[in-house]
Design a binder for these strands. Structure first.
Lengths: 253, 253
DNA sequence: CAAATAGTGTCTTTTAGACATTATTAA
DNA sequence: TTAATAATGTCTAAAAGACACTATTTG
């Protein structure tokens, strides 16, 4: 509970934490999972402190697991943020918390200190996520990337930068595996890319490119949809895909 | 001095620090500026603690300034490193320090703690750098990237990753401005790129591409060299260059 | 005029980009 | 047979890549 974090400060690193921008894709919209501390009525990216026994990647994975129930997610570090004004400008103070929640936390508690945030982004298959708020949180829910609630600290910037990194990566690595179901149709992956890049892509050229790169494979099945021609299902070619992740592919769209 | 850092721990953030891989280019070789703590006979990337009053970027700039005397350098954050084993595996202990230097430092001093390192790389014009070791260091000098001395912690990995980031960036941003003198010849910039990318580039196509992108401009001067045809001097087109830095250019070589 | 290196142009291949028609299914 | 959407091929333009000869200077 709260006590866990407040009293057990010896368990965590000081002055450094992780933030994890968890992206999910649903109904042609890119969403991001945000949490709301019950101390402030602003929202934050999911994040947490780093245990002394874990690496920063493990901390980010734990943060994601706590909110989504998923493990083995695609996790990408993209930048760290740190300057003395991050917390000072946020309205996140002992006084404010006392007013809102009745909790009395010392003014000089380590949680109000200057924190460097190591930021990651994570891609999830929306339908598999079971959203759960972590302890010490008032809420946790998906928000459309293009329609965010008021954000705390510099978290709006963090999301912007995460999106920038995602868009850069999508041109060099075969992202998509983690955002779609195992079998997907061309229209589905096509509109995923259009959504992430926020621009329309010629369907013929798009298909051509993915097939030429060899990262997707046509299956002999169709998705059952009524009222019109059913689309073929595709899956990723895992080897090509992993190789692409490692050494990079040119997929400039 | 040492006391500054050891006693004045309240001045610095705990559990987080910056490392800065300072690159310089000299005689067709890419070099990196390394420091040697006088406590261990291994080398490290230049680095330091973060003051409570400064941002991580300011800390990295200060680290570079202390060793090179230069300000306004090109500074690029590329990754953060953090896991509990970084220090444990390094042989960096109070006992070892006492043996080597006679300094008695408590086993539980904060300097032996788990540190997350926010890593940057910096590009410098070799000839302008006046190498100076910082306090608490036995030495500070240039080393060829391809021929490094024994490195402490995970600093060999940090250099590898910095180089990877530099090679990625060079394909998207017009790097070079900070590594060459103001006026340079085509053969000079050509061999700079060949050195960084560790592969040979066709001189005609290389020139064509830089000129087409508009980031370099031919001057009406030649470099005085005897014994053969003197090369023309070029300079960067600062506007195009800055624009390229901001929005990215495709310069795949 | 010889030595040494600088400078440059053309042709070919590959890749990117624009563009519109036919195919399949269910109701 | 119609409604709805899936699937696909060709032509053009631009960019990348391969390749070798001429130019300029000093000694």
């Amino acid at each position: 509970m709260a006590d866990d974090i407040l009293n057990d400060s010896g368990k965590f690193l000081l002055n450094v934490a992780v933030d994890n921008v968890i992206f999910g894709y649903h109904e042609k919209e890119l969403k991001v999972l945000l949490q709301q501390p019950f101390t402030v009525d602003k929202w934050t990216v999911t994040g947490g402190y780093i245990k002394r026994t874990e690496s920063i990647e493990e901390a980010a994975a734990r943060v994601a697991f706590t909110r989504t129930g998923l493990t083995g997610l695609f996790l990408q570090q993209f930048r760290s943020f740190g300057n003395p004004k991050r917390v000072l400008d946020s309205g996140f103070t002992a006084k404010h918390i006392a007013e809102v929640t009745g909790y009395e936390i010392p003014e000089d508690s380590w949680i109000f200190d200057y924190f460097v945030s190591v930021a990651f982004y994570t891609l999830t298959e929306f339908s598999k996520v079971r959203v759960e708020k972590a302890e010490f949180e008032a809420a946790c829910q998906w928000w459309p990337v293009n329609d965010l609630p008021p954000m705390m600290f510099d978290h709006e910037l963090i999301i912007k930068e995460a999106l920038k990194a995602l868009r850069l990566h999508i041109a060099h690595y075969p992202i998509g595996y983690e955002l779609l179901e195992e079998k997907f149709t061309l229209p589905e992956i096509h509109s995923l890319y259009e959504t992430i890049l926020a621009k329309s892509l010629d369907d013929r050229n798009f298909t051509k490119k993915l097939l030429a790169a060899g990262i997707i494979v046509k299956l002999n099945e169709k998705r059952k949809i009524s009222g019109h021609r059913p689309p073929y299902l595709y899956k990723f070619n895992k080897e090509k895909y992993d190789e692409g992740l490692k050494s990079g592919v040119e997929l400039v769209f």
